[in-house]
């Protein structure tokens, strides 16, 4: 465990909390992609199946439960909460998530560390997490005006990925047999997807303006 890894996990949790807080406080989920949230829940559920037998640390177990619980709450708000679900932008959130799920599943079957059910589900979750933000980015692109909290949510998620890369570099330098190229490549793709968004987010922040994405 190193400072980059802990920072990454906390940033990840913060991003989810920012989103929950926004939905709870404003009773609105405008600008939030339900598709992305459902994909994240699928990522957590398929990756954290080992919750029942892998007691690596209390730290890991607590985070796993919290990630699954908080992302389930977001989905519950968006689909079931009487006020919030009316604000869901379903006409713009039309990304077909099978286009992401099927290729990730096929890739996980072909490229994995070990051919076992749980290893393949874990690998699938790694691939799926890399692209799960796409419906959210497409929705932001379509609606152009991004409210502050949604912008902060995506920014924190990107920051979380960047810190994971620092964690890998640190571990590679300090742990003799540390290597995880499936995770590294997926992580690089995932972080890369945020770069464009980061550029506009930081520009808006520098000029203390509302974040607007170009057409």
């Amino acid at each position: 465990m190193n400072i980059f890894r802990v920072s990454a996990d906390i940033l990840h949790l913060l991003s989810i909390l920012v989103l929950l807080l926004k939905i709870h406080a404003t009773k609105s989920c405008a600008g939030i992609s339900l598709k992305t949230q459902e994909l994240y829940l699928a990522v957590f559920v398929t990756r954290y199946l080992d919750l029942f037998w892998n007691f690596h640390s209390l730290y890991n177990s607590v985070f796993k439960v919290v990630y699954i619980a908080t992302s389930s709450m977001i989905i519950w708000y968006m689909k079931r909460h009487r006020g919030v679900k009316q604000t869901y932008d379903k006409d713009h959130d039309t990304f077909r998530y099978l286009f992401l799920i099927v290729p990730c599943a096929v890739l996980a079957l072909i490229v994995n560390g070990r051919f076992s059910l749980f290893e393949i589900l874990w690998t699938f979750s790694i691939y799926l997490e890399a692209v799960a933000i796409l419906p959210q980015l497409v929705l932001l692109q379509r609606t152009k005006n991004v409210d502050n909290l949604t912008g902060n949510y995506v920014f924190l998620l990107g920051l979380y990925r960047a810190f994971y890369i620092l964690n890998w570099i640190y571990r590679y330098a300090t742990e003799p047999h540390y290597s995880a190229w499936i995770v590294w490549l997926s992580g690089l793709v995932q972080t890369g997807l945020y770069l464009d968004f980061f550029y506009y987010y930081l520009q808006a922040w520098k000029q203390s303006k509302k974040l607007q994405l170009p057409s």
Binding site: R5, D9, H12, R47, D50, N54, H56, N60, F63, K64, Y67, G113, R114, W122, Y164, N167, V183
Partner: peptide, 10 residues
């Protein structure tokens, strides 16, 4: 890869 290796990251 060793059999039964656990994933220690989240």
């Amino acid at each position: 890869e060793e059999d039964g290796e656990e994933h220690d990251e989240l």
